[in-house]
Amino acid sequence: MKKISVIITAAVMAAALFSCSMAEDDDKVSGTGSVAEVSTESVTESSEAPSEISISTEDESIPSFRLPFKAEDFDGIIDGLSVAVGGSDIIQKGTVDGMNYSITFQLGKWHRYTSNDQIVTLSKLFWQCYPKMYKRFGFVKGSPTDVSIAVEDDDYAISWTSGTHIHLNDRWLGENKTDFDCITHELVHVIQNGWDEAYLEYGAYIERFADYCRFLYAMDNGYYNDACWDLWTPEENNRETSVRFMVWLDYFYSTPDNDLMKKFFTVCSEYKYPAAEWDAAWTEILSGSELEGHDIDDIWQMYTSSDFAKLKSEVRNEGEVSELLNAYDIRGKLTD
């Protein structure tokens, strides 16, 4: 519903009153077609020079409140972070490892199912995770460094990404209090910057790679992620659907000088190999590694026969370490 307040100059008021005197009802004029209802309560006089009619609207579908945030709410996330709070946006700009990044939280349709503290945590997640992922993969495609996250009470399940714009259902974190790393997944889609399924062995690689990064770069070393999200599901029984296979391939066979997952990202980004030619793509990805010369299906069998494929990755409580991570310091390898 919209409420409209109309301010009319003295000259316009006189014309309106004259029109009223010609109507059947001496007090007011009303109708259902082009005749509008005129009320003297909505008419005011102005001593200023005549001006155009001023219309203000209030849309009840959009929350009418000032954002309950101050710049200092985000202190300590990174050194030198610039924060501006205005209108329905929180705009943050900062530099990490010599690269300039920005994140804009768009809260015009935020109904506070996501709490203030959770939005601060999402800010921390961006500045902790996005620069790390960008440093490894973002330079391949010149991926965007300016990102927006709209927290909105809208009609979709969890979150989705279009270009540099991430959309998060306001109710999701209201009901799933610690699933912050769903945004880590979406940030990967920004870095992918438009992979084309026609040039992927499987179109599912788009989502599987995002999940691979979600696990590897999860905020606070997986403190929240590992208690609410599992690396393995029963459907992951082939290369098309397996996230863990990517983690295994990376952990055991990538080196600083021959980063297999960076090569995988590059092949997916360059649109070099149509889906039917991915045998050649795998040859390029595996070149120079211990797996060079092996057929990718044979490599899959090596993976499925390993304990890595079977160890539990989920934990019951936040901060606990899974069987998989107790056996293999997967995230620690990133800092080696």
Rank of each mutant, 00 (worst) to 15 (best):
Y130N: 01
L122F: 09
K124S: 15
G86D: 15
D79M: 05
Q128V: 05
F105G: 00
V96R: 08
I55L: 14
V85Q: 05
W110Y: 08
P131F: 02
S61A: 10
L67H: 04
V96H: 05
I91P: 01
K109N: 13
S56W: 06
V85C: 02
Q92A: 02
F105N: 02
Y101M: 01
A84M: 07
R112L: 14
F126T: 00
E58H: 09
S54I: 08
W127V: 01
P131Q: 02
P131T: 04
M99N: 14
F69D: 02
P63D: 05
S115H: 06
F74I: 06
T95V: 15
I55M: 11
S82Q: 11
D79K: 14
V83W: 10
Q118I: 12
D117E: 13
I119N: 00
L67K: 01
T121S: 09
T121E: 12
Q118N: 13
D59I: 08
Q118P: 07
G80H: 05
N100I: 14
V85Y: 07
D75E: 14
Q106V: 15
H111T: 13
I55C: 07
V96D: 02
L81F: 06
I78E: 01
L122C: 08
G98H: 07
K109A: 10
E60K: 11
F105C: 05
E58C: 04
S54F: 13
L67C: 03
Y130W: 04
I91T: 15
H111E: 14
G108P: 06
W127L: 00
N116L: 10
R66G: 10
G80W: 07
S102V: 10
G94F: 09
G98T: 05
D79P: 04
G108N: 15
I77F: 07
S102F: 11
D117L: 08
T57K: 06
S61V: 13
I62L: 12
S51T: 15
I90K: 00
G94Q: 06
A84C: 05
V85G: 01
G80L: 06
T104Y: 11
P63T: 11
F69I: 03
Q128N: 07
S123N: 10
M99H: 08
